[in-house]
Amino acid sequence: MTRPSTAVATARMPQLSPEPCGKVRRASHDLMAKAARRRYVGNVTAMPSDANATPRRISLPRTIRAIKQALTAEQRAQFMAELEDIEAGGLRAVVEKWWLTAVLNLSGTWERVEQVKAGTARTAPIEDVIPDFAERFEQFHGQPYVGHVGR
């Protein structure tokens, strides 16, 4: 049995060098690009949307530790204060509320919320996205959809 030489074995592995070239450079670039898009917070990952408008994918355990890691310092202080005052029966609701806040932190949603509040977000009426929306609405609710046209 012949063993691959050291030169062959190492040639198959991506090498980190100051000036990567060819396939290695591209592989390294791809890895860095992926790492840049994916934000790590402990055992939490967040993959923001890219150019083809795929949904942001967030994985965040509903544990106090994971939630704390994904909160800002101010939010963390509020979360901990609420935890200290909550009675056992209310624990689930508090954890759920702050878990949602943490998820929105990781997905960058708050920036978009602020744009909406400031009136700077680029928006379109739902009828432009779902052309038969008004028809579906009326079928479901038995009343016409007012929307922007009716205002």
Partner: peptide, 10 residues
Amino acid sequence: SLVITEEISA
């Protein structure tokens, strides 16, 4: 009335 951001629309 219901509107949607362009990013989510896409």
